[in-house]
Nucleic acid binder design. Structure first.
Lengths: 186, 186
DNA sequence: TAGGTCATGTAAAGAGTTACATGATTTT
DNA sequence: AAAATCATGTAACTCTTTACATGACCTA
């Protein structure tokens, strides 16, 4: 997967391992991210397979290995991108604790759900900022798909927060026995 | 994470490694899943830490190692469940290809998006079935949180499909230059 | 001149899956 | 009698992050 994402970025122009990481952080990190520890070895592998080549660039004393995609690399990327989109049930770690919240006192449950919203909110705000920046800098039609994935990200965060809020409301209003206190009733 | 999920299931009653996997498949697999190759070693580790104990059960010639949570295990679980909910940006692998769809002809893009919807639809239908089954078998108030995570799952799948449909509609109606064919215009 | 960022890379550790191995029992 | 399921477990492999190592350059 990572190798193809790198090829994808290289389809848009040559770049270095370091800059690749910057691009990812800026543009895909809300649905895909990678560390230097995986990017550099991936570039090495891509080089071995001759899907990319690099030239050493020294711009005003700054050393960089600038990678370019090869014709073989383009072919590999085009083959990959045309394949059907696989769907893997994606891990939603934040649901794991909530699944077992029957063991937590209701007040604590509400507090933690509110806490989760407060963690997600700044992430959402940040992505909104990125989206607005992008819509000013670039033609939305030209970058239609990238723009759409940002909208996905924002709406996804909103979806989670809205779901949390619904729970909080229900927990607060249904004063009757939502048995959210298996912990206490024991 | 896996170890705590196992503890969570054991909080609800004793069970075997094999049945643990069945429970996960039935109830958490849409946001968390694990294979036998990780469950059995996890149970071993939990045993080493004395958070669980097991007894060998032979019910009518059928051998099982039935695990129970210990008092120490309960304490560890209660500590974990009370902690704030962490939020990790979760991988959404299905977005990766779409992010680079500028390199795909529009018709192919639409076809693949439709394909993705067709992959998700049965998964959603399946979860709806599970939800209905659960609401008949159990008291929704008693299993409020588990029910809520199912609603999350269903709405999450719907969100993705709806996002895909929006894209398809826009791609089909905006006959003007959505530059979704960088591939061809080169 | 100290700390931050730029830039590349490696080694160890973590967390998991896949595939295999085993053997009993149950269904077709 | 063969195939599927029940039940446990291990070994190899994959993919990843974290932490470290290195060195140059930039800025307060």
């Amino acid at each position: 997967m990572l190798e193809f994402i790198i090829l994808g970025f290289l389809m848009c122009g040559e770049t270095s391992g370091y800059d690749l990481k910057q691009w990812m952080t800026k543009s895909t990190s809300y649905f895909f991210d990678a560390s230097f520890g995986s990017i550099y070895p991936a570039l090495k592998r891509l080089g071995d397979k001759q899907l990319v080549i690099f030239k050493e660039s020294v711009e005003g004393s700054k050393y960089k290995k600038v990678y370019q995609i090869t014709e073989t690399g383009k072919e590999a990327f085009m083959k990959w991108i045309a394949e059907p989109i696989a769907f893997e049930k994606s891990k939603q770690d934040h649901l794991v604790k909530i699944f077992f919240y029957e063991f937590l006192p209701k007040e604590k449950a509400i507090a933690n759900l509110k806490g989760l919203i407060e963690v997600i909110q700044p992430i959402e705000k940040n992505l909104i900022g990125q989206k607005e920046e992008a819509s000013q800098k670039y033609d939305v039609y030209q970058f239609y798909y990238r723009y759409a994935t940002m909208v996905y990200g924002i709406d996804y965060y909103r979806f989670i927060m809205s779901w949390c809020n619904d729970m909080i409301t229900k927990l607060e209003t249904d004063t009757e026995t939502i048995r959210s206190e298996r912990f206490n009733t024991k």
